[in-house]
């Protein structure tokens, strides 16, 4: 190695700064989809918030803790856990459940397998709080008088407590007992926009 002169040191420092700035700039560009992109945001998600697997820490902690591996999705019994694609901001690569498509059956395998502790292990399925199911009485066929459906009640794993039925099988959700698994939303027969939906309370950031 050449002996360091003061001039040489200054030049090296300058070179290092330039280097750092260049790398920073490249990383900045590469990072755009992970910071500001909202590509995966859909009207549904914006409204209901993003539904995380059972046992997920509060959103801010969850995002910090999750290492974006796919273990929970691989462990999932129903295949309901999806990974958000690049373009989803800080949520890129994090697990999400779209209950209208496939809902969580509370097998809790994901919490057992999570390597980061972002999904709290050892929870009983009664203690899970993924969100709250909310019935839209204008859309629900049993409420608006176009049917006597009852699908959500059949699907609810805590039927009788979390979800009860009234006249023409019209559902009522009891938030105290509702775990927000989304099984009701999965089976809801209102196709385009479910009449019962799980609101996770996790704003899309």
């Amino acid at each position: 190695m050449k002996p360091l002169t003061r001039r040489g040191f200054g030049a090296a420092l300058a070179r290092g700064a330039v280097r750092l700035a260049g790398i920073g700039a490249v990383l900045h560009v590469l990072g755009i989809p992970f910071r500001s992109g909202k590509a995966a945001t859909t009207p549904e998600l914006r409204e209901t918030g993003v539904l995380r697997p059972p046992g997920a820490l509060p959103e801010e902690d969850f995002l910090a803790r999750c290492i974006r591996c796919e273990l929970c999705a691989d462990a999932c019994d129903t295949g309901c856990i999806r990974l958000l694609p690049p373009g989803s901001g800080r949520s890129t690569g994090t697990p999400v459940i779209f209950p209208w498509d496939r809902a969580c059956n509370l097998c809790m395998a994901c919490t057992e397998v999570c390597p980061s502790g972002a999904l709290k292990p050892g929870l009983d399925k009664h203690e899970v709080r993924m969100g709250d199911a909310v019935v839209d009485e204008r859309l629900c066929v049993s409420h608006n008088g176009t049917g006597a459906c009852g699908a959500c009640h059949t699907a609810c794993p805590f039927r009788g407590r979390a979800l009860t039925q009234g006249i023409r099988n019209a559902p009522t959700v009891h938030p105290d007992s509702c775990v927000g698994c989304g099984l009701c939303e999965e089976v809801c027969i209102v196709e385009d926009r479910r009449a019962i939906r799980v609101f996770s309370g996790r704003a899309w950031t």
Binding site: P33, K38, A39, T42, E44, R82, P86
Partner: peptide, 18 residues
């Protein structure tokens, strides 16, 4: 949105959105 076109769209939309 359904499961399939969710991911399908999202990759396309990244480009489109930007």
């Amino acid at each position: 949105l359904n499961r399939r076109n969710f991911l399908e769209l999202s990759s396309a939309t990244v480009a489109a959105c930007s």
